[in-house]
Design a protein around this nucleic acid. Structure first.
Lengths: 233, 233
DNA sequence: ACGCCAAGAAAAAGTCAGACTTATTCATCA
DNA sequence: TGATGAATAAGTCTGACTTTTTCTTGGCGT
């Protein structure tokens, strides 16, 4: 699933990226390309390419005669899927999960409202199918199947919104949902109320009722937020 | 203002990035590193670094024995500030402006609601100051001063929301507002109703009234969306 | 003795050129 | 049809050189 398994520079990134985002090198830390190249046992060319990528993510800044300095967290490109993945895998996973869920609570209701207006017949069918899949997997510890349909459900809505910025959040939502199921405490079956809301949401979108779709999505988001408060108050 | 004026690879990016995002090389196009290096008169090392950055933005994909292929627009990292800047400067500027405004309409109301709860006294003061600045520059074609205060106003709210993902949208909002003032038809003074809404919003946040702040921001966003519909229906 | 500015030295990134490796695709032939 | 091999373009490494920025040092005036 990791994008950057390819090539030597990818492996360096897979080591350096998580280390930086985890705060292993605090902001202001200075790294030197040559030293890093030695440490990771790669040539300077490869290391330079890796540094360039980190620089494009605003994780570091490279300056002559100084070295590669780690930038403060506030300047990172936190919407970069790679950065999100690194942070979700590291120390500030809780904070990342929280801020992403708040982001979802802002985006998804609006996206659902737009989807109600723009969704094609095919998308509506897919949506209903996903909702049914969620229902079918909602009992008896079938978390894996439930998760897959949940992800697909939200992805279809984001795509159907017709807004490219919303659509690109599909992967982020997938990461959040996966993380919640796999790493957090999630031994019990999903909340029946949430399942019902998804079914009704699919119906509202099919009916073209934007206001209702928006409201239902707000309730779903509210549930996700409360879930977070329960886990880490 | 452009981030990547630094270094040779930055200049290559400033040429290649806009070209790709503008659709000059349609998705599926194949470029070769060597050829590009010749065209831009740089060494392969430099060109490789540039390609790596484009790859990390998911604008292109580099494969052995094939070359550097342009990825479909749906896969681009459209939240990357650099990509946003390139697209705003290029051909699909209208679409980009539209989707960003819709994004704002989703994010900012929620951010304002959170800001009402979390804003510090200092942030409230700054907010009021910005609102006053907008009022002071709302008459007599003082667009430049109005714009600056408008940008600062929204940035303070996003920061005060306490959500890092929201905070990072400050630059995006700045780009949108700047773009609207400078490039679109904006000869007249700003809408008096919008100015009033900003003043009331600052007051609502200072009073800690989350619901009111959210509602007022929705009205502001609604105005921005209608403005777009008027310009390009 | 103290502070200040200019000239030079040092350090690390930036750039380049060339040789070599490796994976992938395509064409050929059994 | 399926295996073999040739072609190709990215990937990697090395070493030398350039450029920019920072630190040091020394000279000067007050």
């Amino acid at each position: 699933m990791s994008t950057s398994g390819r090539g030597l520079h990818g492996r360096v990134l897979d080591a350096l990226g998580p280390a930086i985002t985890a705060g292993e090198y605090p902001p202001g830390s200075v790294l030197r390309t040559d030293e890093l190249a030695q440490r990771f046992d790669v040539s300077r060319s490869v290391m330079r390419e890796a540094v360039r990528v980190l620089e494009s993510m605003h994780l570091v800044e490279s300056r002559r005669r100084v070295g590669v300095t780690v930038r403060p967290k506030a300047e990172w490109n936190v919407y970069d899927p790679q950065v999100i993945r690194w942070r979700l895998a590291g120390a500030d996973r809780p904070q990342q999960l929280r801020s992403l869920t708040v982001l979802r609570s802002a985006i998804e209701p609006v996206a659902a409202g737009l989807a109600a207006k723009h969704a094609t017949a095919e998308q509506c069918a897919e949506l209903t199918e996903c909702a049914l899949g969620m229902v079918a997997n909602s009992k008896g510890h079938r978390l894996e199947g439930y998760l897959l349909h949940d992800i697909a459900f939200h992805r279809v809505i984001l795509n159907a919104s017709g807004n490219e910025m919303f659509a690109r959040l599909g992967d982020v939502v997938a990461e959040v949902l996966t993380g919640r199921t796999r790493h957090e405490v999630m031994f019990e079956d999903p909340d029946p109320a949430a399942v019902t809301l998804h079914v009704r949401l699919a119906e509202a979108i099919r009916a073209g009722d934007a206001g209702h779709a928006e409201e239902l999505t707000r309730e779903i988001a509210e549930g996700a937020l409360q879930e977070l408060d329960i886990l880490a108050p």
